[in-house]
């Protein structure tokens, strides 16, 4: 298992596009700096809200799909799937290794995003200390909320040979997020809205995350189980 994961990491590093994990945080820095006019409330909180709007609503769900397609790219080119699966590995472990790689990448990107927030705050010279606990909760929550989306995107990326097809599906599900977020009734149930909701600081600070536990377990957990098992079993049944 570890060997497969190492091989996956190696292939990804060699793909020369791991730099993509910097794209989001860099854009977030710009977003944080553009909106430096009037600062109401706590300036950290306001800045993070502004950066989240750019980073978490559309970018985060969409980029997970790009990552998923990248980790399947080698296998889709020139019959790589049969090469890989002819090695002494089980399909299940290959799926799991690719999934873990994706989850780790998004985690790294979230850490960079945390760094981006810190950087913006320092560049603007905020007087208040860096609210690490709140922002850490936000970054961690956003990460967990991408678990089901990553599973679905991996499923689709394995299924379609073309790069753009899984992305098209991703777009179709991600755009309605904006509408869902406008509605307090719909938002908690829409999986693609969860990254933003779980990163949206300002909820109950004493709670573990910025969304209630039952929402986390039912919506994020439920869609994760559905997408992960769906991808896992279909990958196992697919002939290469």
């Amino acid at each position: 298992m570890l060997a497969i994961l190492r091989s996956e990491i190696f292939k990804f590093r060699k793909a020369n596009i791991w730099a993509l994990i910097f794209v989001g945080p860099v854009i977030a820095i710009f977003a944080g700096l553009v909106d430096s006019g009037e600062l109401p409330v706590n300036s950290w909180v306001y800045t993070v809200l502004m950066m989240n709007l750019v980073y978490a609503v559309l970018f985060l769900p969409l980029i997970t799909g790009v990552f998923a397609s990248i980790v399947c790219r080698y296998e889709h080119q020139a019959g790589g799937w049969k090469q890989l699966l002819a090695l002494p590995v089980t399909k299940g472990r290959v799926f799991l290794a690719k999934y873990l790689l994706l989850v780790s990448l998004v985690f790294l990107m979230q850490l960079l995003y945390l760094g981006a927030i810190y950087l913006v705050g320092n560049m603007q010279g905020f007087a208040e200390p860096f609210p690490l606990e709140i922002i850490w909760k936000s970054v961690l929550g956003g990460w967990i909320a991408t678990f089901p989306l990553i599973a679905l995107q991996l499923w689709l990326a394995i299924w379609f040979k073309s790069f753009a097809a899984p992305f098209a599906v991703n777009v179709i599900f991600t755009i309605p997020t904006i509408l869902a977020l406008n509605s307090e009734k719909l938002a908690p149930f829409y999986p693609w809205a969860q990254p933003y909701l779980m990163m949206n600081i300002g909820g109950k600070v004493d709670a573990m995350f910025f969304v209630p536990w039952d929402q986390l377990l039912i919506v994020v957990g439920g869609s994760f189980i559905l997408f992960f098992l769906g991808g896992y079993f279909l990958f196992n049944r697919k002939a290469f």
Partner: peptide, 15 residues
């Protein structure tokens, strides 16, 4: 060569 690049510019462009 790698379609990840135009797709990513699309993702950035939508922001």
């Amino acid at each position: 060569n790698n379609q990840a690049i135009p797709i990513t510019t699309g993702v950035i462009g939508v922001l």
